[in-house]
């Protein structure tokens, strides 16, 4: 004999499981559709972003090409000017110098731009004359520093001016250099020699990490006068055997 009630119950369970599965199936399909939609949207967004980046890169490439062309043009101009300058200097140094000064005064912007281009390029920057910036602690050092500036200029260095740095000044006078090439070592040696002539002892300090910097050009140096500057004046010359003059030496009239 078949238990019909139990059979009905089994059938009902099967039907409910089927119904539940259908609901789960619909929900999961809906969720999958939503996920697919959001993935597609993300792909669209990323594609758009990529396109923007590509356009930006293209634009930058064009700018770079333009700048390179400009640089080439300026380098060519510089080479031509340099050649002409050499020829003119060889022919007449004084008139060449005067002509150059006149040219710079007439076109200061062009001259500044040309210098900037030369300074920015490490190869061309080597031909520039060495430049020394002077830093002092306070105005009591200025008068003596001016004398040093004059000596440096006379030694072939460009010394644009004197800058007061206050408490940033080191305790001892320092010569800071930023490159260890042959030209730099030679310049440092020359500066030290000039300072020695002025009875100034200086500590040579190499500042690393600036070799390829765009901010500091080749042959750039900084002379930081410390608290030990100016040095004590040299003792007056004394005659051998004479410790102290109580009264001036008698001047005998020349007969």
């Amino acid at each position: 004999m078949i238990d019909l009630k139990k059979l009905d119950a089994i059938q009902k369970i099967a039907q409910r499981v089927a119904l539940l599965s259908l609901v789960v199936f619909i929900l999961l399909i809906a969720f999958s559709g939503y996920k697919l939609y959001s993935i597609n949207r993300q792909i669209d967004d990323k594609s758009k972003e990529l396109e923007d980046k590509i356009n930006w890169i293209k634009q930058k490439d064009e700018e770079l090409a333009a700048k390179q062309a400009q640089l080439k043009e300026l380098t060519d101009k510089y080479a031509t000017l340099n050649r002409l300058y050499s020829q003119t200097v060889a022919a007449s140094p004084e008139s060449a110098k005067q002509a150059a000064v006149q040219e710079i005064e007439a076109n200061p912007k062009t001259a500044q731009a040309t210098i900037a281009v030369i300074e920015a390029n490490p190869v061309t920057a080597r031909i520039l004359p060495p430049r020394v910036y002077i830093q002092i602690k306070d105005d009591s050092q200025r008068a003596r520093a001016k004398e040093v500036v004059e000596k440096l200029r006379a030694g072939g260095f460009i010394a644009p001016g004197i800058e007061g740095v206050g408490e940033k000044a080191p305790p001892k006078t320092e010569l800071r250099y930023f490159n260890q090439g042959d030209a730099a070592i030679n310049d440092v040696r020359n500066i030290v020699e000039i300072l020695k002539g002025e009875n100034i002892s200086v500590k040579e300090t190499f500042v690393s990490g600036q070799e390829n910097s765009n901010k500091i050009r080749a042959r750039h140096y900084e002379l930081w006068f410390g608290a030990d500057f100016p040095p004590p004046a040299r003792p007056p010359y004394r005659l051998p055997g004479v410790e102290k003059l109580d009264k001036p030496l008698p001047i005998k009239p020349i007969k």
């Binding site: 059979l7 059938q11 039907q15 259908l22 789960v24 969720f31 999958s32």
Partner: peptide, 26 residues
């Protein structure tokens, strides 16, 4: 999430079909 939901829907569909077949045979 997407992979689990797709596989889950497949499992639910196969279970539903099995139950329908079982009910039909019954």
């Amino acid at each position: 999430q997407l992979a689990v939901s797709v596989l889950g829907s497949m499992a639910a569909l196969s279970l539903m079909c099995s139950m329908i077949v079982f009910t039909k045979s019954l």
